[in-house]
């Protein structure tokens, strides 16, 4: 009996130590997170004063090279895009941005809308304590993880996002861009079709457009280049175009899927590299995509 009583006391001590250590360590690691220069840490820290905000998935990251946009437009730019970010997650991120930061004058969205929800949802737990929206999206797809995160705060910091936040602790992540060129093996593959836009993403895109219109923020929807252009790209662009016009009849999807045609300017078939991004941005600047119109006189 003495051994079992001792074991019970020992287990109670272990539980207390684990919980206390969990809270203390999580608090310390949270301090690192909020001070990082990683885009989401900057978003939730607030105080950003960007004129242009970019939104999208990895195609948004690698098509809209932030330093080049700032150079071309003279406006502060903040790229909120992230690999595998679905439009539903992008909507939550943009709403949080508008809650914590000064509203931008223009939002440019890479509008392909093909990323499913699950790819990035697991990472959201790291910033869930800063955002009820991200917490809800995470709990929707990962109810066990959400419970675990409430029990043990360290679990929420177990993510690729946290590693990124550490990596960008004292350096900006805004110059993140592909610098490689497309491997030869990819260049010989014949062009194929591309996935249709996901309905839930298109719905989220409509809500984003409505929100931005209500806040008086200009919005451009751009389909970034592919190599080669998927055979069904006109149909994809048209489907998104028809849908967003329900939210804003004046708005059109700007299809730049074929704007860059040199494979040397791609890192793979769906992502530009630095050279390709610069080429695209020059075209967009020339076409007035970054132009901000003064408010109409009342």
């Amino acid at each position: 009996m003495a051994g079992r009583r001792r074991a019970l006391i020992w287990f109670a001590a272990l539980l207390a130590l684990v919980c206390a250590g969990d809270r203390i360590l999580a608090w310390a690691l949270d301090q690192v997170l909020v001070r990082s220069q990683f885009r989401f840490s900057r978003l939730y820290r607030g105080g950003n004063d960007a004129g242009i905000v970019i939104l999208g998935d990895s195609r948004g990251v690698h098509s809209f090279y932030q330093p080049e946009i700032e150079k071309l437009t003279g406006l502060r730019t903040f790229n909120l895009s992230y690999n595998s970010m679905s439009t539903r997650i992008a909507e939550a991120v943009l709403r949080d941005y508008l809650d914590h930061n000064r509203a931008p004058r223009l939002v440019v969205i890479e509008a392909t809308c093909t990323i499913p929800e699950g790819a990035l949802a697991g990472e959201l737990r790291t910033y869930a304590s800063f955002s009820p929206r991200l917490a809800a999206l995470y709990a929707e797809g990962h109810p066990d993880g959400a419970l675990m995160g409430r029990l043990f705060h360290l679990f929420s910091l177990n993510s690729e996002f946290y590693l990124e936040a550490l990596h960008y602790w004292n350096q900006s992540d805004q110059d993140w861009i592909n610098r490689s060129t497309m491997p030869a093996s990819l260049r010989t593959e014949p062009p194929g079709g591309w996935a249709q836009p996901r309905p839930e993403n298109v719905e989220a895109l409509n809500r984003i457009v409505t929100l931005l219109r209500q806040r008086g923020i200009e919005v451009r929807l751009v389909i970034a280049p592919y190599w080669p252009v998927p055979v069904n790209m006109p149909a994809i662009a048209n489907a998104i175009d028809v849908s967003v016009r329900r939210a804003d009849p004046q708005l059109h999807v700007l299809n730049y899927a074929g704007a860059v045609s040199d494979p040397e300017e791609f890192a793979d078939r769906v992502h530009l590299n630095e050279r390709g991004s610069v080429a695209l941005l020059e075209i967009l600047q020339r076409d007035g995509v970054f132009a901000i119109h003064p408010p109409a006189p009342r």
Partner: peptide, 17 residues
């Protein structure tokens, strides 16, 4: 006790679930 608690913290923060 400390070692096991440390193992649990390591699993929580570095574990793949």
């Amino acid at each position: 006790l400390v070692f096991i608690a440390a193992c649990i913290w390591v699993v929580l923060i570095f574990g793949s679930f």
